[in-house]
Amino acid sequence: MEYNGGSVVAMVGKGCVAIASDLRLGNQALGISSNFQKIFPITDRIYLGLPGLATDVTTLKEQFRYRVNMYTIKEEREIEPEAFAHLVSSTLYERRFGPYFIEPVMAGLTKKPSGEYRPFIAASDLIGCLNFAKDFVVAGTASSKLFGVAEGLWEPDLEPEDLFETISQTLLNAVDRDAYSGWGAIVHVITPESVITRTLKGRMD
């Protein structure tokens, strides 16, 4: 976790979810890139964050893309967040005794039979133990700090713009206290109509 650094957080809002990460890629204390993406779109309504060892970030991103594409083309429909969470879990557990050093965080909207969308967030440890939270989930080198700030700032039923502000402040303030995270941030707010993506500057040191 500390080798490359990086952190991800996801939060539930009112009929929406948000997921955010920093953009640093490091080699221990040396910064390599300030534009290293750790969050990837899985479908139009699911985003996956992969903080941890950077080689596994890329490998897992490509592996999940392969598995989700095969699922989509065979099932002839997009994967739902619950099913995807279990796909993540079983993919990681396949490597139970030689794991990928990644703690995934996912955020999405589940389509209910009534046609409404229900917010969904989940996180997993590096061997696939799922945690379905109702409020927020954190992971990465700044996770301990993220817990503290999120606990203080998050409240239920935030509208998309308020959720954006809450998750952005949570992430920015948490990574400022972490030497391995930072160098800019990216935030995605997923609503039933669209996904709002914004890149933030923050402290670039």
Binding site: L30, L53, A54, T55, T59
Partner: peptide
């Protein structure tokens, strides 16, 4: 692309490996 022995890859505008990287970057 900057790639290390672990398979870490990053698309970058400039890059360096080795001890030189601590000065050059």
């Amino acid at each position: 692309y900057w790639i290390d022995y672990l398979g870490t890859m990053a698309p970058v505008p400039f890059a360096a490996h080795g001890y030189g990287s601590y000065f050059a970057l």
